[in-house]
Nucleic acid binder design. Sequence first.
DNA 1: CGGAACGTTGATAGCTATCAATCGACGTGG
DNA 2: CCACGTCGATTGATAGCTATCAACGTTCCG
Lengths: 252, 252
Amino acid sequence: MRDLGVQRRLQQSDVRAESIAMRLGSLAKLSETEIALLFRVGRSPCEVHQARSLIQTPADQPTPQRFVISGWAARMRELRDGRRQIYQLILPGDALNWLPGAAAAEIIQCLTMVQAVNGMAVTLAMRDRTMWPGVATALEQAAAQDHAFLFDHVSRLGRQSAYERMAHLFLELHFRLTPVGLVHENSIPFPLTQEAIGDLLGLSVVHVNRTLQLMRRDDVIILRQGRLTMLDMAALQTASEFRPPKTAPGFA
Amino acid sequence: MRDLGVQRRLQQSDVRAESIAMRLGSLAKLSETEIALLFRVGRSPCEVHQARSLIQTPADQPTPQRFVISGWAARMRELRDGRRQIYQLILPGDALNWLPGAAAAEIIQCLTMVQAVNGMAVTLAMRDRTMWPGVATALEQAAAQDHAFLFDHVSRLGRQSAYERMAHLFLELHFRLTPVGLVHENSIPFPLTQEAIGDLLGLSVVHVNRTLQLMRRDDVIILRQGRLTMLDMAALQTASEFRPPKTAPGFA
DNA sequence: CGGAACGTTGATAGCTATCAATCGACGTGG
DNA sequence: CCACGTCGATTGATAGCTATCAACGTTCCG
C-alpha cells in the first residue's frame, strides 16, 4: 500500500514537472523555448529523499545544482545542547544548494518526501544571458527573493510576538506556494509539525500549540490533516505586517 | 575643534583607503595589479554621510555600487509601531547596496559618520574573471560571508539567550574587524549605542544594559568610551558557540 | 497489542519587556 | 558663566510572554 502511494505520486510527475517553469515564470517572462527547457528539466529523472532524511552536501566538492519539484525541506543549524533553528524553508520550485558559504554546522533536512531534479542545465542557461534571458533574470529574482525572505525571517524572530510570527509565516507560505499552483481558496498543504514550526519561529512546541489554538479560536485559520486554510487573510495581514517582496522586473 | 577632528580624520585617509584591499585580500589572493586597483579605488573621492543620516537608494534606479572605507552603518526594517530590527551591520571594507530584492520598508542608517567610495571599478573588475581573478573570487567570498552572517543572525535571534546573543555578536565583530586592521589586543572600536544593540539582537534597551553589566561583572568584557575589549575570548566562545565562516579558497 | 510520533493540557518558573525615574555628558542659547 | 534640552546609560519595580516539566490523548504502524 505504501508502494501504491508512491506510485500514484510518480504518475503525477507531469504535474510536478511544471513546478520549475511555474516558479521561474512568475519571476520573469519566459519564451516558449525557455519554458520547454524547464519542462524538460522538470521531467528528467528525479532523486527521491525520504522524510526526515538529511540531504548531505559534501563540503569539498562542487555542489550539484538541484531543483525541488515536490515536497518540503528545511535548511537548519543545530546548537550543542540540541536547540535547532531553521533558516529557510525549501518548497517545490525552489533550488537546493544554491547558497555558497554554508557553514559547517548547517544541514538540510527533508520535512516530507522530497523529489528533486538535476538543475545543471538551468545553471548553464543562466550563464548565457543572450540565449536564455528569461531564465537568467528569473534565477536572479529568485535569489533576491530568497534574500528578502531571510530578512523577513530576521525581523520576525527579532521583533515579533509568537502570534505575529505565525501569521507572518502563513502569509509567506501562501505567497510562495501560489506560483507553483499549490494554493486553492486560501488553503495550502501544510506538512510542518508543530515542532518544526517552533524550530522555524524560535518558539517551544508547547507555545506553538497554544498560539495555533488562539488563531483557531479567532477563526483566523483552520489547520488539520496536513492542510492549512486561512479564513481571514486581512487579520493575518494586520497582525503580521507581511509584505510581499516586490519582484523587480526591470532588474539589470 | 570639531573641525580639527574631522581634518585629522581626512589626513588619515590613506590608512582608510587600505580597507577595501585588506578586506578583499583576506578573502582571496590578490595580484599586485589588483591590490593597486583597490588602493586606487580606496583613495578616490569619497562621499561622507553624517551619523544617523539615512542612505537612500532610489528604488527605480540602478544602485551605484559603493564601499565603506570608514564608519559603521546598519541595514534595518521598521514596523508600524516603531519596533526596529537591524539585519546587518555594514563595516569598513564592506559593500553598500549590494543586495537585490530589498524590500520597500528597508533602510540603511549610518551609526557613525560614514565614508564611502564609488565601487564601480570593482564591480566591473568582477565581471572580467580573466583579468581580475582575485577580485572576482574575493567578491564572491564576501557575498557568501554576508550570507553566512545572516544565518548566524537568524539562529542568534531564534534560539539564543540575551547573554549568548551578545557574546556571539562581539565575536562576530572581532572576526569582521580583524582583516581591516581595527582589532588591537582583542579590543575593537565600538560605536553602537545600547539601543542599537537592542535593535540588532532583538532586545530592549534596558535588558541590553543589564546583560552588559553581567558580562562586565564576569570580567568577560570592558566596554567604555566607544571601545570594547574582550578579556575572555574563551568564555565568549563557549557561551555563544560562534564559529567563523570558513572561506572556501577553492570556490568555483 | 505495543511503540513511536505528534498533539494537547496544566502547573510553574524564568527570562525579558515595559514603565518610570535618575544621572552624566554634551552642546546651545541667554 | 549658567540654565536648559537632548541623548545615552543606569536602576528599580512590575507585568507578561514564553519556556520548561510532566502527563495524557490520539493516530498510525509494525
